[in-house]
Simulated assay, not measured.
Amino acid sequence: MSRPARRLVVERPGEFRLVTGERPEPGPGEARVAVHAAGICASDRELFDGTRPADYVRYPVVPGHEWSGTVEAVGAGVDPALLGRGTVAEGFRACQRCDRCRAGEQTLCTAGYAETGFTEPGAFADHLVVPARLLHPLAPEVDLTSAALLEPAAVVAAAVLRGAPRAAERIAVLGCGTLGLLAVQLLSAFSPVELLAVDPRSRPLTLAAGMGATAAVTPGQLDYEAAGFDLVVETAGAPGTAADACRLARRGGRVVLTGVPEPGARGLDPVLLVVNQLTVANVFGAPPAAWSYAVHAFNHGLLRPEKLISHQLPLESFGEAMRLVGSGDPGVGKVLLRP
């Protein structure tokens, strides 16, 4: 008989319990991972509060879509060389058969939404089972704790790939939460002549300045008339930041939106878009190519997420972790659960 294992189950909004049972066993094409660390983000808070759109969650559910761990068992048809490897994994469970998947756009899969931690069991547990095809093994020497941030890093990597930065450009990052600070790190590798970080909070601005930003300012310090950035990456999802990102771009510039605003956000000015001939793109989640890019950058030290982590709590402190994430405390960065 397998050893008991714990999992944190959110039964319905606001109600959770820690359940003990047998370890899950991987089926054909699957791998079981011993969870090392799992991050909590605003989407997990939405799941817990019941504000996540109904099509994007299935209760009861074990949350946890940002995680790292070690492969400890594999099912039939899976390479046994994966055993003992540190790993992360893509969250989207794309069908791999529809036109969009075959075009490499797995985040637009037409078979319906399915994602680890929202509709499928996630990593707020001692173990989780995922399709082995989604795994991205890590270099042996990397830090598994900071690797738990590779899911948001993959989203940022998708934005960077869409934005196609070039050396010597002027680049701005609007919003310096987890996504924004990871974006600063990736974008600094392209040697921009200017890399501006914008956030209303002092702690993120201090971190951004140490991660490659050449300037770090609050929104009130922005001079839109003198902005003229070649590329603007928006990560905040605040009511006005998508529109503000377009105002920061030069004529003919590029804007990539990654933040997901709440209903009622200020829309984009169509006159500004047309007259300035802006190219506006957006990302939701990360396709496999973005995951590969993020993991490669992490394995080679271009991504250094460890300074973004402010709290590490045991699995049984899930309630405290939720309070931290929703507290608005400027001292709270990335919160991790450590099974």
Results as ranks from 00 to 15, higher is better:
Ala54Phe: 01
Ala227Gln: 07
Glu316His: 15
Val217Ser: 03
Ala38Ser: 15
Pro80Arg: 14
Ala148Pro: 03
Leu207Asp: 03
Arg201Pro: 03
Glu11Lys: 14
Ala290Ser: 06
Arg32Ile: 03
Ala148Leu: 09
Val62Arg: 10
Pro140Ser: 12
Thr279Lys: 06
Leu248Val: 07
Val156Ala: 03
Ala245Trp: 10
Val173Thr: 02
Ala236Arg: 10
Glu90Arg: 14
Leu303Pro: 10
Pro152His: 02
Asp230Glu: 14
Gly210Ser: 02
Val295Phe: 02
Val88Trp: 05
Arg133Glu: 05
Asp329Ser: 07
Leu187Gln: 04
Pro137Ala: 07
Leu181Ser: 02
His300Thr: 15
Ala238Met: 05
Pro314Arg: 13
Arg102Cys: 11
Arg7Gln: 12
Gly39Leu: 06
Phe118Lys: 06
Asn276Cys: 13
Val88Ile: 11
Gly212Asn: 04
Tyr293Met: 12
His296Arg: 15
Leu302Pro: 05
Pro261Phe: 11
Glu151Asn: 09
Pro137His: 00
Ala148Gly: 09
Gly237Asn: 10
Glu90Ile: 05
Ala164Phe: 05
Pro219Met: 08
Ala289Thr: 12
Val193His: 09
His311Phe: 12
Arg166Gln: 13
Pro60His: 06
Thr70Asn: 00
Gly240Lys: 07
Pro305Cys: 10
Phe92Met: 13
Ala249Ile: 09
Ala139Gln: 04
Gly177Asp: 07
Leu181Lys: 04
Val198Arg: 03
Gln312Arg: 15
Ser146Leu: 01
Leu82Ala: 04
Leu273Val: 13
Leu195Trp: 08
Leu248Thr: 08
Ala81Trp: 07
Ile309Thr: 04
His65Glu: 04
Pro192Asn: 00
Arg52Tyr: 02
Arg3Val: 10
Ala281Gly: 13
Val184Ile: 15
Leu196Lys: 09
Val74Pro: 09
Gly69Tyr: 09
His296Thr: 14
Leu313Gly: 11
Gly240His: 12
Gly50Tyr: 07
His296Ala: 15
His296Phe: 08
Leu174Gly: 00
Val233Glu: 01
Leu174Ser: 00
Met1His: 11
Leu149Glu: 04
Arg6His: 08
Asp269Arg: 08
Glu105Tyr: 11
Gly50Cys: 08
Val260Pro: 00
Cys246Leu: 13
Glu316Gln: 15
Glu115Tyr: 09
Phe92His: 14
Gln106His: 14
Ala89Thr: 06
Glu105Trp: 13
Arg166Asp: 01
Arg85Glu: 10
Leu134Gly: 00
Pro152Asn: 04
Leu278Val: 01
Ser191Thr: 12
Val35Asp: 04
Ala37Met: 06
Thr214Trp: 05
Arg45Gly: 11
Gln312Met: 13
Lys334Cys: 04
Arg247Val: 04
Glu194Val: 03
Ala265Pro: 00
Glu22Ser: 12
Phe118Met: 13
Glu25Arg: 15
Val71Ser: 02
Val74Ser: 05
Gly69Glu: 11
Ala286Phe: 06
Ser202Thr: 14
Gln96Asn: 11
Glu72Cys: 12
Gly240Arg: 15
Thr70Trp: 04
Val19Gln: 11
Ala125Trp: 03
Asp244Pro: 02
Cys109Gly: 04
Ala183Trp: 13
Arg201Cys: 03
Gly86Arg: 15
